[in-house]
C-alpha cells in the first residue's frame, strides 16, 4: 500500500534527512559552484563562472599523470585483491571449523582500524634502515621500497583486502555447496568443479567486490601519503594539497569532482565487462 508521506513518517525521518541535506547535499552543491570560480593569489577566490579549473586539469600533463597513477594503482590493487581474496574467501566460506566466527572477526577487525594505523607496519618494513633493509644488509645488499609505487600498491592492497574477503565470502556462502558435490560426484576434479560450476555463479559478486576495491583505491589518502612520499601524487592527496598548501579552493573543488566523476564513469563502464548473462 503506497500513499503520500504520512505525518508520523515525516516526523521520524525529517531530522535525519535535514542532516544529510545540510551536511552533504548543500556542501556538495556549494563545492560545485566554487569549482567554477577563479583563483587569485592575493584575493584567493574570485566569483565568476568559468570552466578554467576543469580545462586546466585536462590540458596540463602533470594532472593527467596523477589521474593515470591513481587509476593504475586502484586497478592493480583491485586485480591483486581478487587473486588474494578468492582463496581466503573460499576457505572461509567452506570451512566447518569451530573457529570460523573467530576467523571472521579477524578479517573484520582490520576494516575498522584506520588506514593510517595499518600503514605503520609497512613503513617499519619498507623504511630506509627498516626491517627489510636491515635483513638485506646482512646479505650485503639494500632494499629501498619506501616511496615507490610498489609500496603504495602493497599498502593499499593490505587495506582493501579484508573488504574483498568479506564480500567474496558472502558471495560464496550464497552458492549451494551441493552443486560442487554434484559436479564432483559426476567425476569432476575439485578444481574443475570450482571453475566450471562455482566460478560462473560467483562472477557477478566477484566483479562487484573488485569494483568496491577499485573505488576504495581511487579515494585512498593515507597509503599514498605515507608510503608514496612527498613526490608521489594520487588524486585524494592532491585535492588536500591544493586546498591546504596552495589555498586554491576552486581548483581543489574541481579536482574532487573530477575524481568522483572518473570513479563513477569507470565503475559503470566496467559493468559492461561482465557478460550479460552473468550480471547481477
Amino acid at each position: 500500500m503506497r500513499q503520500k508521506l504520512p505525518l508520523a513518517a515525516a516526523g521520524l525521518l525529517g531530522p535525519a534527512t535535514s542532516v544529510v541535506v545540510l551536511m552533504l547535499a548543500a556542501p556538495l552543491a556549494l563545492l560545485f559552484r566554487d569549482s567554477l570560480n577563479r583563483f587569485d593569489v592575493t584575493e584567493l577566490m574570485i566569483e565568476t563562472v568559468t570552466a578554467a579549473n576543469y580545462t586546466r586539469f585536462f590540458t596540463e600533463t602533470f594532472y593527467w599523470e596523477v589521474l593515470r597513477t591513481t587509476i593504475l594503482v586502484a586497478a592493480t590493487v583491485a586485480v591483486l585483491c581478487v587473486a588474494l581474496g578468492l582463496p581466503l574467501a573460499w576457505r572461509l566460506a567452506r570451512t566447518t571449523s569451530r573457529w570460523k566466527s573467530l576467523m571472521m572477526l579477524l578479517v573484520i577487525l582490520p576494516l575498522f582500524i584506520g588506514s593510517t594505523v595499518r600503514t605503520v607496519g609497512w613503513m617499519i618494513l619498507f623504511a630506509r634502515n627498516g626491517m627489510m633493509d636491515s635483513v638485506a644488509g646482512l646479505f650485503g645488499t639494500r632494499v629501498d621500497l619506501m616511496y615507490t609505487t610498489t609500496a603504495v600498491i602493497i599498502g593499499t592492497l593490505s587495506v582493501n583486502l579484508p573488504f574483498m574477503v568479506l564480500t567474496l565470502q558472502s558471495v560464496f556462502e550464497g552458492i549451494d555447496d551441493r552443486l560442487t558435490e554434484a559436479a564432483q560426484g559426476l567425476g569432476a576434479t575439485p578444481s574443475r568443479a570450482f571453475w566450471r560450476v562455482v566460478w560462473p555463479l560467483a562472477l557477478p559478486g566477484v566483479m562487484i567486490s573488485a569494483i568496491l576495491s577499485f573505488i576504495l583505491g581511487m579515494n585512498a589518502y593515507a597509503t599514498p601519503v605515507l608510503l608514496g612520499g612527498p613526490r608521489f601524487q594520487m588524486m585524494a592527496p592532491l585535492v588536500f594539497w591544493e586546498f591546504n598548501t596552495n589555498s586554491n579552493w576552486p581548483f581543489s573543488a574541481a579536482l574532487a569532482f573530477i575524481l568522483m566523476a572518473t570513479t563513477l564513469l569507470l565503475t559503470s563502464l566496467s559493468n559492461f565487462l561482465v557478460p550479460r548473462r552473468y550480471r547481477a
Binding site: 544529510v20 548543500a26 563545492l31 579515494n219 574532487a256
Partner: peptide, 16 residues
Amino acid sequence: PLTVPGIAVGLAIYIL
C-alpha cells in the same frame, strides 16, 4: 554519505 569519498565531504563541509 557512505558512498561519497571522505576527501570530497571534508572539503565541501569546510567550504560551506
